[in-house]
Design a protein around this nucleic acid. Structure first.
Lengths: 207, 207, 207, 207
DNA sequence: CTCTAAGCGAGACGGTACGTCGGGTCTTGAC
DNA sequence: GTCAAGACCCGACGTACCGTCTCGCTTAGAG
């Protein structure tokens, strides 16, 4: 019962967090500043989020449950598509700061650390697993490969490009999708599995 | 003139920083705690390092200029070796926390940000470039590929495994070295270059 | 038109205020706590009282308009009676906390400050004036003395005993009434007034 | 060891507290405001005082250990002198607000409550006891009266005048000293003690 | 062999942000 | 229009950390 939470306040908090995150980065983000910028009181923030980290998580990461993966008809297309999603998510400066900041802040295992993992990592992993199954169904792969490895091969280079090299990952999705698809097919064949010889398709379209 | 710096103090600072970094993570690391744990005064720290970041950098990152790359005789061996170095560097929990923390803290360009980049990223990049040249010299590749891309393909998955998946990267170097070497050869041939047909090496499965 | 105020709410507010005042003192009294303890909403409180001070005033001070002074037949008896009233009023722990708290809070002149003054101070002063007139009429005093001084002589020691010494003022009224009555008669005679020589009463020791 | 407390900071805190106390009263006094007004950080305050109350106590009450009572040669003079001291102490607007505010805030027994009592009440009580002994030694009184009662008779009216009537206590010390001295002598004789008949002295100099 | 500049542990300093709490206002849906 | 519930804005509280600044002492190398 009682007065319901004001939706405009929710949105104002998230919007302000995202803007200040983009403008000043994760370090440099102040709860007071968010409150002032959103035209609300700090209590309204802490009524929703127990800590600054929770707020940032909600503002910049939570919703990125990673949309259901569209089937492009080929492993390579699917992977490219997934990488494009990851790039799009992290390309946003707010999310970019937030993910890195949270990753650094959430050293000790905690409830939020788990939720962050679930929202960000587990969901990506699930998508990867789905794509592998599709490839097997299609006959592109004989057996589904190590999901964590594939995930690392896809998400890792995006991280490296953005956070280590501090470059825009232009064209990365395309190239990464192609390379990983090719690698997976090679590994698959080398392991003695092997779909019904779709292998040749892989060699042809270099983009 | 005057009294020279006490070497034992230098070491005590670095040791304490590394220990506390490993124990409490980058967030959770306090300059006061380092001073107390090292049995020294804060002034002794700030006489050496201008900021907490500098201290952490010196304690956990600085020396990792990445040893000169040993020539293993094959692209795949060289890459595996490099990834092993990266894994070894970041496997240490102190360095692990430190790198992530500094990455998050050093949002704005600064002198330290540049030095961090130089010590960590540029040196890795240089090694990658060297390995590419070796491969070309050996005839494994017809033309040196995009160094940044290769760097991202090597370092990225290590980051993803450690920081996103929070797993130990056991066996990652081996697999990653093989996959990337193979991918590079494929790309190279597809691009119409092509060393003197060392391609067969790709077929030899696993190791 | 509209729903009438619920009388039980009025009483619940006042009762809860008094209880919490007695239990936690003025400083530890919270409007939220009053609402919860009374099983009502804060709005019901603020609909009746503009501020926490008003509420406390109403709960613990307002009604103490100081009953009409009973004529005991002697100045000494009247004064004793008045002091007993004051002691009874402030002896209640709720009222005790409330008066002190309001006194401290109501620094700046305000409407409530005036009402507090009127309800608490002015009414006492009026009673004192009345008692003085009675004494003059009776012939115990030749001229009515400075009312404020007499008030201070009566109420002050009660305050000092309760708030400074933190003791229960047992037996204080009796002794204070006697002393002040005697003092006033002495002053009166010294000033050259003098009722019809009731002075001898002064010699009658004790009671 | 370590850097010693800066005396100027101590003084700046106390001075700022006193000024803001006088300007805005006890309620309305902010620790942040004190820090800003003193040009120091909040930490410097909380390093010295655990709470706002402690700070106010130190600034406005602590030092009022009540100077050693000067011997004026007569009970009446001594009492007048003491009341003048009390009036002088509480006449200061800062001390005035502080005493009342602390009295109201320190409802529950606590370490500070005890120290406040000791510094403010006990010291006054000790002076009163001393004056009573002097009077007995002088022969003005046959036996020392109830010290708490006398203390209440002296301090109480000052409180009542200042805090209840909100008047300046001009001329109060004089009148109060005379009245209480006279009362005590009367009580003393009535109780059957009696110094060597100095009684007549009381009647003469009315001022 | 003294003098002196610099290092040292300790800890206070000014700031700034945190997360909590209280006061007084406003809003919802039930009555 | 009142009620219980509870969200809202505001602003103070006391804590913690950063990077700086003394203190009084120790330690080496220059004269």
């Amino acid at each position: 019962m009682g007065r319901p939470r004001d939706t405009r306040v929710d949105e104002a908090i998230l919007a302000a967090t995202r803007e200040l995150l983009a403008r000043h980065g994760y370090a440099g983000l102040t709860v007071d500043a968010v409150a002032e910028h959103a035209g609300i009181g700090k209590a309204a923030i802490y009524r929703r989020y127990a800590t600054k980290q929770e707020m940032v998580f909600a503002a910049a990461v939570h919703r990125s449950d990673l949309a259901p993966p569209p089937d492009t008809g080929s492993l390579r297309g699917d992977l490219t598509c997934l990488v494009e999603d990851i790039v799009a998510t992290l390309g946003n400066p707010a999310a970019s700061s937030a993910v890195l900041g949270l990753l650094a802040d959430l050293g000790a295992p905690s409830a939020l650390a788990d939720r962050f993992h679930a929202s960000f990592v587990t969901s990506q992993r699930a998508v990867v697993a789905e794509l592998m199954d599709r490839a097997v169904a299609r006959g592109e792969l004989g057996a589904p490969p190590d999901v964590d490895l594939v995930h690392a091969l896809l998400a890792g280079p995006v991280f490296a490009t953005l956070y280590l090299q501090r470059r825009r990952p232009d064209g990365l999705a395309e190239r990464l999708g192609r390379m990983v698809a090719e690698t997976l097919r090679l590994e698959d064949r080398a392991a003695g599995h092997g779909g019904h010889a779709t292998g040749s398709a892989a060699g042809s379209p270099t983009a």
